[in-house]
Design a protein around this nucleic acid. Structure first.
Lengths: 349, 349
DNA sequence: AGAATATGATAAAACCTTTTACCGAATCGA
DNA sequence: TCGATTCGGTAAAAGGTTTTATCATATTCT
């Protein structure tokens, strides 16, 4: 199939009776050194031959790949998660605006064991890396060093001194707690996600801070792990209400689990929000379309992704030395929360 | 910050008192030419220096980038769509198994206008391309040619002769229609997605084929565009029932719109499935967690993505000349469909 | 007019591999 | 012992660009 060889700068040089160097200078507008006559000659040859410089050769020479990496953890189907998807959309869009392309990697055990994360830089795959969904267990993050720009997106890592852009999850916890308390709830369940995620703790700290202020106790029996999945959320909600039927409100660490929780509550015949209020966290798109529409903490995920990408580019071009940003969150009230029913239905006071 | 220069094969050669060539031969196991003594010497030097070959130089030399491209259309936040996400997960996983990496591009108008899709190959960004979410309007697909392996994923393009891997949407339409008809529905609404998508027509053809067999008419007033979004699905369902209150079942072109439709129906006080049945298509993960859980056509999206990726690799390595595959689909019955209520509530017979 | 400076273009080095072709030394067969 | 192999290894080319240093030629200054 004689896949005819790609045209190179040499071909252009020959075609235009100019030297290799001249062609390069013209193409890169290296100051007016070249006469407009030769410039035209070169340009027309480029046009005629349909020449486009090889990005491989360019990268080799410039020692810049023009790629940004996105590293996500190994989950069921990581990319089918709207939370990650939203971040990736934001990152891709921002990167494209700056003529960078995105490459996608999944940090599974095999990957890490083979040090593929280090190869990303050492073998010049990428110029910078964005890490999504990291946990405090991800010790490999400590492997990155000098000249390897890395930003942790919407999280932090406890023991590793890495740059990050995140939402204020402590505040998110406070807002959620305040909302429930002010509605009058006193028996509250808490569905959390993986505890090794830093923002999971942040959220809980903020939440408990406010509960204490309202003098409400949150016994261990009111906590349940929802695994950050719908199924987990459903199971957790059911477990919580079985263990303590007086619970009138549930805070879920993310919307996914909250939606699962609503589905679980319905399954055991509890009406939302009449009998049990549910509040989530994230404000993903579909929260508007579950039944009832979910009250949740709005976190500016898209902005965080875009900002992280911009900052990464600044790190790469040495416009920044270090990045540490925390974005504000807010309450989005829909219909899954209400004041608790007084009297009859349980609620032993 | 003296970012100390990366160690190159030259450094290894010097360190191990061998020639450049020898080092390369050892590293690539080019037949037993090298004595085990030198081999050891080289290997230990590699170890000591922490040498890793530059993939840029390798790619330049081999004329293979080691990347696969994924091109998605411009949508709200394309990657935050579980359907695309599932495909991307499958592709990424398969590619990684074969030591390929994935790069992500969004085909927005600016991108296409600048012919960035062609640059992908011409500038050696990628060795092969997977196109997601294409429509019959995407004429740029015709630009790809010889030596540019491209596969359309879970779709086809009417006028362009491109390789594809897809689900059998004609059959999906048939199955959905059969299900509704056998339940006894006679007044059926149809929420469709973008008509410029080939599978949209396939689905409809299959659906109408069965309705004719059951001698049921589907007047234009029973069609509504749901824009492939939740909002669109909700609006469409409401419009359909306002226009013809005798409708007892709705088929939706994807689950997203179906979930929206359920939410819309509830909003106007219609119970699902007692008053109106809803059946979707795709079987996305969350269909299990809406209320009621959605009856839908299961399409093996993940398999399609994985298969498309495998086939693309075969095209690249010339193990295949052409790819045309259609995967089976099946019915997943949950609780959003039921027999129509007889008598009282409308249903003029 | 002779020296100094612009101007326009180019040869060569550098970026880092892999592969091809070749070379000297040792081994082997006759 | 001569010619043919095998063995172990290397120099050089190729892959395609950018950048640096250099070289002619033309122009300007004194």
């Amino acid at each position: 199939m004689a896949k005819r060889k790609a045209v190179s700068i040499k071909d252009v040089a020959r075609e235009s009776n100019a030297s290799l160097t001249t062609v390069s200078l013209v193409l890169n507008n290296r100051d007016g050194r070249i006469s407009s006559a030769t410039r035209e000659r070169v340009l027309s040859a480029v046009e005629r031959l349909g020449y486009r410089p090889s990005r491989l050769a360019q990268s080799l020479q410039s020692q810049r790949s023009g790629f940004l990496g996105i590293l996500v953890p190994q989950l069921r189907h990581a990319f089918a998660d709207v939370y990650f998807g939203e971040l990736i959309s934001a990152i891709q869009e921002t990167a494209a605006e700056h003529d960078y392309k995105i490459i996608l990697d999944v940090a599974n055990p095999r990957y890490l064991e083979r040090n593929h994360h280090l190869e990303l830089f050492r073998r010049h795959y990428i110029d910078g890396l964005l890490c999504l969904g990291v946990t405090n267990n991800d010790t490999y993050l400590a492997d990155f060093g000098e000249g390897q720009p890395v930003i942790v997106v919407n999280n932090r890592v406890q023991d590793v001194d890495l740059d990050f852009v995140q939402c204020n999850y402590v505040e998110a916890g406070r807002i959620a707690a305040t909302h429930l308390c002010e509605l009058g709830h006193r028996h509250i369940g808490y569905i959390h996600g993986a505890t090794e995620v830093q923002t999971t703790s942040d959220l809980r700290h903020g939440f408990e801070e406010i509960l204490q202020r309202f003098d409400i106790s949150l016994p261990p029996s009111h906590f349940e792990d929802g695994l950050y999945t719908e199924e987990g959320g459903a199971d957790a909600a059911i477990a919580l209400l079985k263990r303590d039927p007086s619970i009138t409100a549930i805070f879920s660490g993310n919307d996914k689990m909250a939606i699962g929780a609503i589905s679980g509550l319905k399954r055991i015949g509890k009406r939302v929000p009449e009998e049990v209020s549910v509040i989530g966290c994230d404000d993903v798109h579909q929260s508007e379309f579950c039944d009832p529409p979910l009250t949740t903490i709005h976190t500016p995920i898209f902005d965080v992704g875009a900002r992280a990408c911009t900052m990464l580019l600044d790190l790469i071009s040495s416009k920044q030395e270090t990045v540490r940003e925390t974005k504000d969150v807010s309450l989005t009230v829909r219909n899954s929360t209400a004041a608790p029913q007084t009297g009859r239905n349980g609620s032993p006071q």
